[in-house]
Amino acid sequence: MEEFEQARRARLRLRVGAVVVLVLVALGCAVLATALTARPEPTEISRAEPGENGVEASFGAPPVFVHVTGAVVRPGLFELADGSRVIDAIAAAGGFTATANRDELNLARLLTDGEQFAVPVEGEQSADAAASDSRVNLNTADAAALDTLPRVGPAMAARILAWRDANGRFASIDDLRSVSGIGDKTFEGLRELITV
């Protein structure tokens, strides 16, 4: 009888111990799940979620950081999805102020990582409009735009796009020299016609 009572107590302790372990494991999982999903947002950087303000998601593509200044409601640094345009950055900055000169910016222009632009006030010309030229941006141009450059035909345009796909954005126009078929003479002919 005493052995039976000891065995019963041992089973009861085992059951209580198992319940305690299960409760602790469940609590640990809940804490871990909360820690992994709760990321604090930085206060200096505003984020535009994909689909918000017309920003489309680019899965796998790194975000772009853009500094918006001038006549916007909340000037600052914004993290946007790759492929975002000037209008998306302005929307992330809270939109134009009442004094903004809206006609001086190309709202459809694709943004590049690390750029800064200022929204001018009425009577002021934007740096974007002042710098507006016909240079081809190596980071945003498609094959047709690249094909407009001298000595760049469809095959060379395809090699430039393949290099960009394999290596990421061009950090400077000098990176173009890394593309197969771009020698010094070709590069010098393109130097004034391209930008990043």
Results as ranks from 00 to 15, higher is better:
A57M: 07
G181W: 12
G123N: 07
G183S: 08
V73T: 15
T148R: 15
E192V: 06
R169H: 07
L36H: 10
L161G: 11
D175F: 05
L107M: 14
T37E: 13
T140H: 04
L22K: 00
R74C: 01
Q6N: 10
L22A: 15
V68G: 04
L105H: 02
V55F: 03
D133K: 06
A26M: 08
N167A: 09
N137H: 14
P50G: 10
D88F: 00
E44H: 09
N139T: 11
I182L: 04
F4L: 14
S84L: 04
S84G: 09
A71Y: 02
V64R: 00
L105S: 03
S134K: 09
V136H: 04
V72E: 00
M1Y: 03
V21C: 14
S178H: 13
A35H: 09
L111H: 03
R15H: 11
T99H: 12
A71P: 08
S126Q: 02
E188N: 14
I182H: 06
E188S: 14
F117L: 06
L149A: 12
I160K: 02
D133R: 09
L149C: 09
I182V: 15
S172R: 08
A141R: 04
G95M: 09
A48L: 15
D82H: 14
R9S: 12
D113R: 02
D113T: 00
A162G: 11
F78W: 01
E192Q: 13
A118L: 05
T148Q: 14
M156A: 12
A10K: 12
R85C: 11
L27F: 13
I45C: 01
R47G: 09
S84K: 03
F187Q: 03
Q116M: 04
P62A: 14
V23D: 03
A33H: 10
A141N: 02
P63L: 04
S58T: 07
R13W: 13
D128Y: 07
E122L: 14
